[in-house]
């Protein structure tokens, strides 16, 4: 299920790419966006930072990228203090913000060239790097078209390319695939894996658990400004005991609630967690597979019509539900964090 979760992270010989101790960030209105976060990301790791909207993901990434100054705590990025050596931090990171940021009046080539110039890439290397990056993100064919003509996915790819011109050892990707169709998303994933395979440390925030599961070596889950879980996707999934039986039932909320009651009181399951969703119920139990059919019979005997069912291993969604008690919103149009704009204002 997870393509990379079992991969060992490179041994950390020296300083970590990211070293955060006791990070706190309190906005002017008193909102405590980040509250005592500790984290250490070794070099070369593909690190995922998960959480629902407003949990503190973007605020944290903005502190790491020197766009926001921490209220308290020690934050070192590539060995540099974000407060006292901000310019060195900036020179040593790539940053792909949540909102696509390309100059639409310029062509793809000009956007990448401007990034080369911004980061002081030696002039003699511009042409080669621009060509390489255009190839890497598959925009070579449209290199001389203005970005305003590009689709959302193409702009995202261009944005990602501009974050890499200086070959940064660490790249921040803030919800890079939000709002993209699955095909464009897969293409970006492939691209992120390529740059990670070259040794680039990647710090990814996402609301898509599938994305984190697919890409990340290790994850942290943030909720209300605090880290509530850490580990590889596989480790996190092991935190959900047993398997999951999803049952779809006919009728409305009443029928679903009745089905949930039947499942909760079903003696064969023992320790069971039942949640009601839009289509039916989700039952988490160690014996969900073994006694699943018995539950279906019991539901039928209770006069509930089952329209479908599935027994599966837990996904990160289930982990998230177990940890946070809420489902992770995967709505691409969902709002970004409250304070996103204020972050720019400063």
């Amino acid at each position: 299920m997870s393509g990379r979760s079992e991969r060992t992270t490179p041994s950390d010989g020296g300083e970590a790419a990211i070293d955060v101790e006791g990070l706190e960030l309190v906005y002017g209105d008193g909102t405590r966006a980040v509250d005592g976060v500790d984290m250490r990301v070794p070099r070369g790791e593909f690190f995922g930072f998960l959480g629902p909207n407003g949990a503190g993901k973007t605020t944290t990434i903005k502190v790491l990228a020197t766009l926001l100054s921490p209220t308290d705590g020690e934050v070192r990025v590539n060995g540099f203090d974000v407060r006292t050596a901000a310019r060195k931090v900036r020179a040593s990171i790539g940053y792909m913000p949540q909102e696509t940021s390309v100059d639409e009046e310029l062509t793809a080539r000009e956007n990448i060239r401007f990034a080369c110039e911004s980061y002081g890439v030696p002039r003699g290397e511009h042409a080669d790097r621009v060509a390489d990056l255009l190839d890497l993100v598959d925009l070579a064919d449209v290199a001389d078209k203005r970005a305003e003509e590009f689709s959302g996915g193409m702009k995202k790819r261009l944005d990602a390319a501009t974050a890499l011109v200086h070959r940064p050892p660490l790249v921040f990707l803030d919800e890079p695939t939000t709002g993209l169709d699955p095909k464009a998303r897969n293409r970006l994933w492939d691209y992120f894996e390529r740059i990670n395979d070259r040794g680039t440390t990647i710090f990814l925030t996402t609301q898509y658990l599938e994305e984190a599961d697919q890409l990340c070596d290790r994850l942290s889950v943030i909720l209300d400004g605090e880290i509530v879980a850490e580990g590889s996707p596989a480790e996190l999934k092991r935190r959900v005991d047993g398997e999951i039986l999803d049952v779809q039932v006919e009728g409305g909320e009443t029928e679903r609630e009745r089905a949930a009651t039947v499942a909760r009181e079903f003696p064969a399951f023992g320790d069971v967690t039942v949640s009601v969703d839009d289509e039916g119920v989700s039952v988490t139990a160690e014996t969900a597979r073994k006694h699943g059919t018995d539950l279906l019979v019991a539901l039928r005997d209770d006069g509930i019509t089952v329209t479908g069912f599935d027994v599966r291993a837990p996904t990160l969604d289930d982990v998230f539900l177990a940890i946070t008690g809420e489902e992770l919103s995967a709505d691409p149009d969902a709002d970004s964090e409250m304070h996103e704009t204020e972050g720019v204002v400063g």
Partner: peptide, 30 residues
């Protein structure tokens, strides 16, 4: 997906001491 022509971007710089930035005038010019 193949990885065409990416030799030039093959590895991320592992050290951070070779980071280059422009001079002030260079930034103005850019």
């Amino acid at each position: 997906m193949s990885t065409p022509g990416v030799e030039g971007t093959e590895t991320a710089s592992s050290a951070t001491d070779d980071l280059s930035v422009n001079s002030f005038a260079g930034d103005v010019w850019v």
